[in-house]
Structures are given as C-alpha cells and as structure tokens.
C-alpha cells in the first residue's frame, strides 16, 4: 500500500470526519436557536392518538411505504429509495471496514455484498439522474447542488463498487478515488442538500408531534 493510499484511508478520513462533526454540531445549534412553536390548545382527534404516537409514526414513516399515498401508489419509487439509501449506508460502512477491519474484506461474501448494494445503488442513481433531467417538474425545482450531489454520489457508488475487492496490489486508483471522494463528501455534505438526513429527525419529530396531538397521525383510512 502506498503512503498516499494509507493517508487517504486514515488521516484524510479522520480529519474529514472531525470537520463534518464540527460543522454538523454548528448546524444543529443553529437550528435549535430558532424557538420552537408551542401548542396551547387541548388535543383534538381520537383519544388514543397522542403526540408520542404521532412522533413515532412520523419517524417510522420511512419504513412504512403504505403510510403515505405518495409512496403507496409508487412502489417502484420506494424500492429505488431503499436501494439508493442502502447503497449509501454500505458505501459509508465500507470506508470504515477497509482501513479498520481489512480482514473482513478478505471474505468473498462480504465483497459481493458491498458490490451488490453499491452496484444496485449506482444503477438507481443513474435512473435518478435521468429522472431529474427529463422530468419537467424535477427540472424546474432542481438547483446546481441537486445535480452535483447526485452525480457525485453516482460516481462514488461506481468507485465503491470497484474498490470493494480492496486489492491495492492490482492497482490503487479505484481505492484512492473512492477514499478521496468519501473525504470530499464528509466535508461537502453539511453544506449541501445531502445534509437532509441531519434535519429529518427534527422535521418529522415536530410534524409528527403536531399531527399526533391533533389526532391525524397515525393516518386512518376507510
């Protein structure tokens, strides 16, 4: 392993992680600086609905495609969402496994797992680019950050797929690109739309709390 690859797998990642943690902390404090709106009125809706249930339902929405019409009626979109985010998760995990648990990567099964998840995510990411470019609504609402983030993630999935065998002896390019991209993401993410996962718990918490308090969540259909 070259010094550059060692630097990319360790020092670079650690520095990037520290930067990300600092920026995220600042971001969370920034959000918390805004006063939370408070509800004065007594609860409405069915007696068995509560803010707590509303919050849990709201958070769990992500794993309940039947919970929202938008996901219930578009199962393929939901499957794409799952594959894409599983790909992100495994690509992140791989960035820790390779430098800190390299023996795991000697298993063909583990490599195959990382390749299947990141490879599938790559395909979905390409589909998402096509959808964003070809759909009039998505085109109208997209910013350069939206395109850049998606294209970069697509490239990251591709290099994660290629780097999964973790065979530096056969060439370090794929591993280098993968780790440099990972580090770039760690620093870039807090400033981009990809930071949405940081806000997700907050937005869904407050929305779920309000909807639970008012008896709307959990959603009932008849």
């Amino acid at each position: 392993m070259s010094e550059l690859l060692h630097f990319a797998e360790h020092t670079l990642q650690e520095v990037a992680l520290i930067i990300m943690a600092c920026v995220y902390t600042v971001r969370v404090f920034w959000l918390l600086r805004f006063k939370a709106g408070k509800e004065r009125q007594p609860a409405t809706g069915a007696a068995d609905t509560t803010p707590r249930k509303g919050i849990l339902y709201s958070w769990a929405n992500i794993v309940m495609p039947w919970g929202m019409e938008s996901t219930r009626t578009k199962p393929l979109m939901y499957i794409q969402f799952v594959i894409f985010h599983v790909g992100v998760t495994t690509a992140i995990i791989m960035s820790f496994v390779i430098p800190y648990l390299p023996k795991l990567m000697e298993s063909n099964g583990v490599v195959l797992f990382f390749q299947i998840t990141t490879g599938a995510a790559f395909i979905i990411a390409v589909l998402r680019i096509i959808r964003r470019v070809s759909g009039p609504v998505l085109r109208a609402i997209s910013t350069p950050d939206d395109y850049f983030s998606l294209i970069l993630l697509t490239a990251w999935f591709a290099f994660a797929f290629l780097a999964a065998p973790n065979n530096s002896a056969a060439g370090e390019t794929n591993l280098l690109v993968y780790f440099f991209l990972t580090a770039f993401f760690l620093i870039y993410v807090p400033f981009s739309k990809i930071s949405h996962y940081l806000y997700y718990p907050f937005t869904r918490y407050y929305f779920g709390k309000s909807m639970g308090f008012r008896g709307v969540y959990p959603i009932r259909r008849g």
């Binding site: 939370a36 709106g37 996901t71 997700y200 907050f202």
Partner: peptide, 17 residues
C-alpha cells in the same frame, strides 16, 4: 421564523414525491 418552519425550509431534497 420558528424551528418548525426553518426545519421545513431546509429539509426539502427536491425529490418531487
């Protein structure tokens, strides 16, 4: 601006759902 509104303003990922 309050926390709920700011959360809604920053969280959109333009997914179009």
């Amino acid at each position: 601006l309050n926390r709920q509104v700011v959360g809604s303003l920053v969280a959109c990922v333009h997914c179009g759902m």
